[in-house]
Simulated assay, not measured.
Amino acid sequence: MSEKLPQDSQNEEVDLGQLFNAIGNLFDRLFSFLGRFIKGIFSAIIFSLKPIVNNFKLIAIVLMLSVVVGVVSERFKTPIYVSDMLVKPYYDSKYQLANNVDYFNALIGSQNYTELSKIFEIDSSTTAKELIGFEIEIGPETQNDLLKEYDDYIKSLDSTLAVEVTYEDFIENRDILAGSIFSIKAKATNNDIFPSLEQGFIKTFKNEYSIKFKARTDSIREVKKQNYLEELERVEKLQETYLDIKTNESSKGELKLGANGLIPLIQEKTETKEYELFQEELKIRSALRILEEEALEESEYYDILSSFEDVGTIESNSFERYSLIFPAISLLIMVLVYVVFKAFKFIKEYE
Rank of each mutant, 00 (worst) to 15 (best):
M1I: 08
S2R: 07
E3I: 11
K4G: 02
P6D: 03
Q7C: 08
E12P: 00
N21K: 13
N21Q: 14
A22S: 15
A22C: 04
N25D: 11
L30T: 06
F33R: 06
L34K: 02
F37R: 01
F37K: 02
F37E: 03
K39G: 15
I45C: 12
I46V: 15
I52R: 00
I52W: 00
N54P: 05
N54S: 14
N55L: 13
F56P: 00
L58I: 14
I59C: 00
V69F: 13
G70N: 09
R75G: 06
K77N: 15
S83W: 05
V87W: 01
K88Q: 15
S93P: 05
Y95G: 10
L97D: 02
N99E: 14
V101D: 06
L116S: 02
F120S: 03
A128L: 10
L131G: 06
I132L: 12
E135Q: 11
E135W: 05
I138W: 01
P140T: 01
Q143F: 03
I154Q: 06
I154M: 04
S159Y: 07
T160H: 02
L161V: 08
L161D: 10
V165M: 14
V165T: 12
E172G: 08
E172T: 13
G179F: 03
F182L: 08
F182K: 04
A186V: 05
K187Y: 14
T189Y: 07
N190A: 14
I193K: 06
P195R: 04
L197Q: 02
I202N: 10
T204Q: 03
F205T: 08
K206L: 07
Y209E: 08
K214V: 04
A215I: 03
R216L: 15
S219K: 13
S219L: 13
K225F: 10
D244W: 07
I245E: 07
S250P: 07
G253F: 02
A259G: 00
N260K: 10
I263N: 10
L277T: 08
F278S: 15
E281Y: 03
K283E: 14
I284S: 01
S286V: 03
L288N: 11
E292C: 03
E292P: 02
E294R: 04
A295N: 04
L296I: 05
E300K: 11
E309W: 00
V311H: 07
G312W: 04
I314V: 15
R321L: 11
Y322E: 09
L324E: 04
F326G: 04
I329N: 08
I333A: 12
V337W: 12
V339G: 01
V340S: 11
V340K: 05
Y350H: 06
